[in-house]
């Protein structure tokens, strides 16, 4: 029995990766939930716009690298973030002007907005592939590890190793900063409060002199920033491929719904719930229990509940359970 080794192996393969992955999902789900509570539709173009924005971060990174600029031990991509964010905000505002604003004016049903977002999704997807191609791209540079498995073993003297990749630390730190800023904005500034007011009660917000178009612009800007952050962090931590980003739509929506659609706090909690469940259920627990149990009790099978290939099934199962037993989500989002 060896609790320390068990904890180390669990941290290395489940806890730390899930923390990073959960932060990425949380950022995406926050965008989904904000758009849902202000514009009142399910934004299906989220994953593709995220891929599009990340494409510009990658181009910016390459440009900076070509100019010989680097960010020391940190990835150059962080320096290119403002470019991606600016492009995406402009792109979203353009899409709003050309597509969504019309449907707002005629007070179209939410499903029409969803259809329109499918159109935007197609266009964005085409643009991304035109620029980047459909293949996989890596753009991480700088220090790869805060400490590696070998360094950890030498330092701790344990049998199991633990690696902490810098992309994981960066993800968690950036995500926490972004979340803190978002909550500060929503709860402490006049503009943020006007967003919450608009989400709560549109008519009364109008009556109070809140300009809906301004609220919409702020919402797109925040959602765009979150998308580019989520996309860049995901790309640094794993890899960049437009199709993978499209597929992230499912965990994003699942996280937002599980947490309570329309609730920012719920989106964050939902993101971590999805990530930990996905990692925990697809992890082979044999090694963990090998350390905990006496030798003759050691498990003979992998103790993997389902294969990694079915990680979507985990997300889906959580989603279904929440939809059946608590349709408003953990934090009681709105049910429009």
């Amino acid at each position: 029995m060896d609790i320390l080794n068990a904890i180390v192996v669990l941290s290395n393969f489940v806890l730390i990766p899930a923390l990073a992955y959960g932060s990425q999902i949380a950022l995406g789900a926050l965008g989904i939930t904000l758009i849902y509570s202000i514009l009142r539709f399910a934004h299906f173009a989220h994953g593709d716009i995220m891929a599009f924005g990340t494409a510009f971060v990658i181009l910016g990174t390459w440009g900076l690298q070509a100019m010989g600029v680097s960010f020391g031990p940190l990835p150059t991509a962080l320096l290119a973030l403002p470019l991606g964010i600016a492009v995406i905000i402009l792109y979203l505002l353009l899409a709003d002007r050309m597509v969504y604003r019309f449907y707002r004016k005629v007070k179209a049903k939410p499903m029409i907005f969803v259809m329109a977002s499918l159109g935007v999704m197609f266009v964005t997807n085409g643009l991304t592939r035109l620029i980047m191609g459909p293949g996989e791209r890596r753009f991480d540079d700088g220090e790869r590890f805060v400490f590696s498995v070998r360094e950890f073993r030498e330092w701790s003297g344990l049998a199991e190793g633990l690696a902490l990749r810098s992309s994981q630390v960066i993800t968690v730190v950036v995500a926490l900063i972004a979340m803190a800023l978002l909550f500060w904005f929503l709860n402490r500034t006049k503009s943020g409060k006007s967003m919450r007011a608009y989400s709560d009660n549109e008519d009364l917000a109008l009556l109070s002199g809140i300009n809906p178009e301004r609220v919409v612009i702020i919402t797109w800007a925040i959602a765009g920033t979150l998308m580019v952050l989520a996309g860049t962090l995901y790309g640094l931590d794993k890899s960049y491929r437009p199709f993978t980003y499209f597929q992230l739509l499912l965990p994003f929506f699942a996280a937002a719904i599980v947490g309570g659609l329309g609730s920012p706090l719920g989106a964050i909690v939902g993101g971590y719930v999805i990530a930990f469940a996905e990692m925990g259920i697809t992890y082979a627990w044999r090694r963990f229990f090998n350390h905990l149990l006496p030798d003759d009790w050691a498990p003979t099978t992998m103790l993997q509940i389902i294969p990694v290939d079915y990680k979507f099934a985990v997300t889906f199962a959580i989603l279904v359970l929440v939809l059946i037993f608590r349709p408003t989500g953990i934090f009681r989002g709105k049910t429009l």
Binding site: F41, M111, L250, F253, A254, F316, L323, P327
Partner: peptide
């Protein structure tokens, strides 16, 4: 709700 069904079918 219809958008929940959408997510469920996507999944």
């Amino acid at each position: 709700r219809s958008d929940y069904l959408a997510i469920a079918t996507l999944g």
